[in-house]
């Protein structure tokens, strides 16, 4: 058997259809992970040792076990759990499962951003008598978040590449459509290659973009130039 261009064209509509699901789900999972990452970050700051240790353990557990098994747990096992069990549709499982898994990574990024802020910034904000809310929203977060944008961006791409996992619980994304199409015709080569090409075409330019952004950020947040005004011509 060899490459068949007609077959490629035949499989295109199905894969296109799946692509929108994949893209939409990527964004939904990612937003969920960003929000939930904030929850971890702030719960971890509560100054009570036992709670901090429990949270650290839960995060480590989620991070070091396979997202695939976590998806299966939510999809197949959660409905059987007494009292709190719920039957969830595949899309919801996907958003919660992948969202929570990656929120543990995103929380680390937030944390590194917050911890990189000099203690003097907190002290100056206290000396000016700013409220706790103003300290966070006006002083700390505006400095902590921008340097983490390239890293957060990388996780968008990673999320995009993890979303096909949800094909195993029946979410009809690109991979799922290609597999279905392949099994109908007993020929997987063309649809699967097409899916791979689609992934590459979408993720590679995005990755290059974020790499560029990262280089720029590194320059912007250089210690000698902490405000981010880029002096034209001088690259340190």
């Amino acid at each position: 058997m060899t490459w068949n261009w007609n077959y490629v064209v035949e499989s295109l509509p199905a894969i296109f259809q799946g692509m929108w699901i994949t893209l939409g789900l990527t964004i939904a999972c990612y937003l969920f992970a960003m929000l939930f990452g904030f929850v971890w970050t702030f719960v971890r700051r509560i100054p009570w040792r036992p709670l901090q240790m429990i949270i650290a353990f839960i995060m480590e557990f989620i991070r070091s076990t396979p997202p695939l098994v976590q998806l299966f747990f939510l999809y197949y096992a959660w409905p059987m759990v007494p009292y709190v069990g719920l039957t969830l549709d595949p899309i919801t499982v996907a958003i919660i499962g992948l969202g929570v898994h990656f929120s543990t990574y995103i929380a680390e990024i937030y944390r590194s951003g917050i911890e990189s802020i000099d203690k003097g910034q907190w002290e100056a904000a206290t000396a000016l008598n700013l409220s706790l809310k103003d300290k966070w929203t006006k002083i700390i977060l505006p400095q902590a978040i921008p340097p983490t944008i390239p890293m957060l961006g990388n996780y968008l791409i990673i999320m995009f590449k993890e979303v096909p996992l949800t094909s195993t619980i029946g979410v009809a994304g690109m991979l799922h459509m290609a597999n279905n199409f392949g099994s109908k015709n007993f020929a997987y080569l063309e649809p699967l290659t097409l899916v791979a090409v689609f992934f590459l075409v979408m993720s590679y330019p995005t990755a290059v973009l974020f790499r560029k952004l990262e280089q720029r950020m590194n320059r912007r947040f250089d210690k000698n130039n902490p405000t981010g005004k880029i002096d034209k011509g001088v690259v340190t």
Binding site: S167, L175, A187, Y188, L192, V195, A196, F199, L200, A207
Partner: peptide, 17 residues
């Protein structure tokens, strides 16, 4: 640039073809 699960399926299903 492509996903591991896609690569895995490709090696398993598509490469033989």
């Amino acid at each position: 640039g492509t996903s591991l699960i896609v690569q895995l399926f490709w090696f398993y299903y598509a490469l033989p073809g």
